[in-house]
Nucleic acid binder design. Structure first.
Length: 294
DNA sequence: CTATAAACCTGCTGGC
DNA sequence: TGCCAGCAGGTTTATA
């Protein structure tokens, strides 16, 4: 479920509302939601801890505690962290944290794929060795992206989903970024020219920033810390929009499978070299999508 | 390296 | 209405 924007949105909410709170008690209801230690040890280690700060790395949420330990949360496909007034204040609660103000922070996860772990802050770097750069950092420049894509034989879509190439991009924002940059998802990563890499770099940052701005993308079960859906779905152009007209040219959005993932794109605006000359029955409709032109 | 499939899990949707 | 196939925001591991 959550990609970088969804994790970042919740991280900001927790930074404002969880920092300074004390975890009175932790309760694990699904043992496999905790990794790296027994549920008992996890509950013992968290009980009584004060929350010092909240951060994010890629799709990982980081809650730093007053004993130098960091609660690391990866929500995978269906996990949510939700404030509630009761321990059973949400469905599918796998772990509950009772807070010192009477509320609960609930880890809800219907599919049980997500994982919580407790890591000493000095060991944090060790568990993130597989992660590539943060796409919204200033250090992430077009040159960095170019270097990361160089020599890559895989499709650009599969490459963007690889967390060791860029941290935090998932299926929604990969499709949206490739659409915005007008690059076909099956293009080999090392076949992009400098202009395409520049466009892709700008597109990645822009779709992620827009996602954060709108509180993340909800088309299924993603909810933020206050159990609210994100508003970004209405701002998506291709993801889960199969059959709907491309706002740029009117061609219906198509869905294919790339790297075992549903992949959405405009066959007219995002073409493979072999089909650059194939005509589209849909005439360009400049200005049709709210673009300004005179 | 790359590519593919399977595994981990449950729920929802669409077609018949 | 009911059942079944297919699909879902992710990652890891095994196999070719």
């Amino acid at each position: 479920m959550p990609e970088l924007p969804e994790v970042e949105h919740v991280a900001r909410q927790l930074r404002a509302d969880l920092v300074g709170r004390r975890i009175v008690r932790a309760s694990v209801f699904w043992p496999r939601s905790v990794s790296g230690m027994t549920p008992d040890a996890f509950e013992q280690a968290l009980g009584g801890r004060l929350v010092k700060e909240v951060g994010r790395r890629g799709k990982y949420l980081l809650v730093t505690l007053d004993n130098g330990q960091v609660l690391v949360v990866h929500r995978r496909m269906s996990g949510n962290l939700i404030f509630a007034d009761a321990q059973d204040g949400a469905l599918y609660v796998r772990v509950a944290f009772a807070l010192d103000d009477g509320r609960y922070l609930l880890y809800s996860d219907p599919r049980k794929f997500g994982r919580l772990m407790l890591v000493p802050s000095e060991n944090l770097a060790d568990i993130f060795t597989h992660l590539g750069p943060e796409p919204l950092d200033e250090a992430f420049t077009p040159a960095v992206l170019a270097k990361r894509l160089a020599g890559g034989k895989r499709s650009i879509k599969a490459t963007l989903l690889d967390q060791s190439v860029i941290a935090g991009v998932g299926n929604i924002y990969a499709d949206e970024a490739l659409y915005a940059a007008q690059i076909h998802p099956l293009r080999p990563a090392d076949s992009l020219d400098a202009d395409e890499i520049n466009r892709l770099h700008a597109a990645i940052q822009s779709v992620l920033e827009k996602g954060i701005e709108h509180g993340g993308t909800t088309f299924g079960r993603y909810r933020d810390a206050y159990n609210e859906a994100g508003g970004n779905f209405d701002h998506l152009v291709v993801y889960q929009k199969t059959g709907q007209p491309c706002p740029r040219c009117g061609t219906p959005i198509e869905r294919i499978t790339v790297a075992q993932r549903g992949t959405h794109y405009c066959p007219h605006c995002q073409r493979l070299p072999e089909e650059t000359s194939s005509p589209s029955p849909y005439p360009a409709r400049r200005g049709a999508a709210g673009e300004t032109f005179r």
